[in-house]
Computed example of a mutant assay.
Amino acid sequence: MELRDLRYLAVLGSELHFGRAAARLHMTQPALSQALARLEREIGCPLLQRDTRGASLTEAGRVLLAETEGVLRTVDLACDLARRAGRGEIGEVTIGFVDAAVFDILPPLLRAFRQRYPAVNVTSRQMKAAELVEGVKAGQLDLAITRRDGSGDEVEYLPLRRERLGLAVSLANPLASAPDVAVADLAAEQFIIPVIEGVPSLHGLWLDLCHDAGFEPHISAHISSIQVLIELIANDIGVAFAAESWTHNTPGVVVKPLRGTNEYIEVGVAYRPRQLPGAARNLLEMALRMAERREPGGLPGAA
């Protein structure tokens, strides 16, 4: 028994007229008659009888139609849900992120996505950059907002935000009033440095900047969280190389341009292009569109 024959019977039962039913189904009357005859053969009794006024359901036809209406509704609902899942309008997405993403990338992205796709359940997890890439590779994460560290053959990476590296200082630090600073002038400063286990790329970059300027930095704190770094700077515990977006919500910290250097901090999205569910693809595309709409300079070199 084919579902389409049951649908034909439902329309016939509603119209009780072969001509109107055939027109509604966009088929010819002979084809509709053949479908009804096929269904009657499978059931083993007449389901519809013609009369001078058109047609009417037999008792068997009324019972079959009443019992199959729920089946047809269930099938229609299942098909609709499948189509919505295929378009990424329902489902689940797990997105990992580095802590730097919470300043100006992740919150507006999640707000916009939940407003556009309210039936998609999004779970976010803060992890280290290396763990994020491994999570994507293992299928534990659909997307990861992370640094470029560790992307490889299985994982594709696209940049979302690229900022010039500066020096974050407390407003109480005399450097706060300087128009810019040179790394070589920072030898006497106390530095706050990311631990190598947490952020190896930033740890190496920051030490290299000091070494290239000819000095070993005095380190007042080792941190594994950008939020902790900014809070320590606000309390004048030390200075640190930083992106300006990290300090937007911290009035007591200012980022000064670095004179004579051209280093950038980049955050992007990592994913497996061949194994990306529809809902995750919608989130990825939204993230890329939001990155493109940033003011000029927000993503230099990202395209």
Rank of each mutant, 00 (worst) to 15 (best):
G13M: 04
A221T: 05
L171F: 14
T146A: 07
D99A: 06
V93G: 08
N173S: 08
R62I: 05
I192C: 06
P194W: 02
P296D: 05
I145M: 14
A280M: 09
R281C: 09
A85G: 15
P300H: 15
L167N: 10
K256R: 15
E231F: 01
P277G: 11
L109E: 03
L299A: 11
L72A: 04
A22F: 11
L207A: 01
S56A: 07
F97M: 12
E156Q: 10
I265V: 14
S225V: 01
G44S: 05
L25P: 00
D153V: 13
P300L: 03
Q275Y: 01
V269H: 12
A101V: 01
L64A: 12
L81A: 15
W246F: 09
E89H: 04
E244C: 14
G268R: 10
L132C: 15
L283G: 07
E69F: 00
E197F: 03
L9S: 07
L65F: 02
G19R: 06
L299I: 01
H222F: 03
L57K: 11
A168K: 05
F97V: 08
R62Q: 12
E231W: 01
A10G: 03
G238C: 03
T261D: 13
G252N: 10
S224P: 00
A187N: 10
D104I: 00
A35M: 03
F215Q: 06
P257D: 15
G96Y: 12
P107F: 00
L77K: 11
V253A: 09
Q115T: 03
L232K: 02
L205V: 09
I105P: 06
E134K: 14
E295W: 06
D153N: 13
G44V: 09
I237C: 01
E67A: 11
E154P: 07
I90L: 04
R114E: 07
G260M: 09
R53D: 02
A270S: 15
L12Q: 00
V267C: 12
E292Y: 00
A23I: 04
D80R: 13
S151I: 07
L158M: 00
D208P: 00
S245G: 11
L288Q: 05
A287H: 04
G61P: 03
A176R: 08
I196R: 15
R84D: 02
P118S: 08
L106C: 08
L171W: 12
R83E: 07
E295S: 14
P179R: 03
R274H: 11
A172E: 15
L57P: 14
V93R: 10
L32C: 06
E154H: 04
L36V: 00
T74K: 13
R274T: 04
A172S: 14
L288M: 10
H17Y: 05
T28P: 00
